[in-house]
């Protein structure tokens, strides 16, 4: 970030920032504020007992654990995919690269139905796993698979550019010092990638907690076992319990906001570090 001191000569600050803030307020902030106002209809103890009832707690557990595992698996395989796409040459690479974006574009309901059809006990893969006693659809594993699908592009697309820009010299130096390939990876490459990987993981994780469309088809929706938090919001809505629904929504909103804020601060600190180097 060079030349930041003399930025005043560029025009359009008031206009662009003003528009940005106005737009964000109208589209994002005011609507989200509605959740707060609606929740305010509840007394504190009502709010607390709603968001900490046994089923809701169980659903946080399901949502957070499956999102965490999905995020973790995506971090591992997302890194692998990014690595392969950036560093190696093989036929059909362009095609594979495009395939990564597909989960962004496919309607989540279609993804859910398709994944359920494949992993159900009579599906293509489910029927192979059934004799082994592995149940994928209608279990937490199924939810995790749906979330892996949803979150994969986030990891690949955050890691890819960093891997691309990584200097050959650092690795070169490690090799000169006699480090083995795997050791170079652990000691040199991975620390460099860690912030991007963490960001990708966190995004996939945050997206996973809120995902609804694809998960309801594959989860089986068993209370206390495979019931996710967004489904509970829907359930409350369908019983005309708006205040209860918005109370849970509020908890999810705050968690999402905090997670994103942490990511952005992390990113910002990292940028500062590299700039000051």
């Amino acid at each position: 970030m060079k030349g930041s001191k003399s930025r005043n000569i560029l025009p359009g600050f008031g206009l662009s920032l003003g528009f940005t803030l106005f737009y964000l307020s109208v589209i994002v902030l005011i609507p989200l504020a509605a959740v707060f106002f609606r929740t305010a209809e509840l007394s504190w103890s009502e709010f607390w007992s709603t968001v900490t009832s046994a089923r809701v707690i169980a659903s946080y557990k399901v949502s957070f654990l499956t999102s965490f595992f999905a995020g973790f698996i995506n971090a591992v395989f997302g890194l692998l995919i990014a690595w392969v796409l950036v560093r190696y040459r093989f036929p059909g690479k362009k095609l594979i690269d495009s395939l990564v974006d597909l989960p962004f574009a496919l309607p989540t309901a279609v993804a859910g139905i398709a994944l359920t059809a494949i992993y159900a006990p009579n599906g293509w893969i489910g029927s192979l796993l059934e004799p082994l006693g592995v149940k994928v659809a209608y279990s937490p594993i199924g939810i995790t698979i749906a979330l892996i699908f949803i979150g994969l592009p986030f990891v690949v697309r955050t890691v890819q550019p960093v891997l691309q820009d990584m200097e050959k010299e650092t690795e070169e130096a490690a090799v000169m010092l006699g480090a083995y390939r795997l050791r170079t990876f652990w000691k040199v490459v991975l620390p460099e990638l860690a912030p991007a990987l963490l960001t990708g993981f966190a995004l996939a994780f945050a997206r996973g907690i809120g995902e609804y469309g694809s998960v309801v088809f594959i989860s089986g929706n068993m209370p206390l076992k495979t019931e996710i938090t967004p489904l509970l919001i829907m359930t409350k809505l369908e019983q005309y319990d708006y205040a209860g629904a918005t109370a849970i929504a509020l908890v999810m909103l705050i968690v999402s906001f905090l997670m994103l804020l942490i990511i952005n601060l992390l990113q910002w600190r990292m940028n500062r570090r590299t700039v000051s180097d």
Partner: peptide
């Protein structure tokens, strides 16, 4: 805040 819609559940 710009990122927030990424993480907000579609239901919300």
């Amino acid at each position: 805040l710009i990122d927030l819609p990424f993480a907000v559940s579609p239901v919300i």
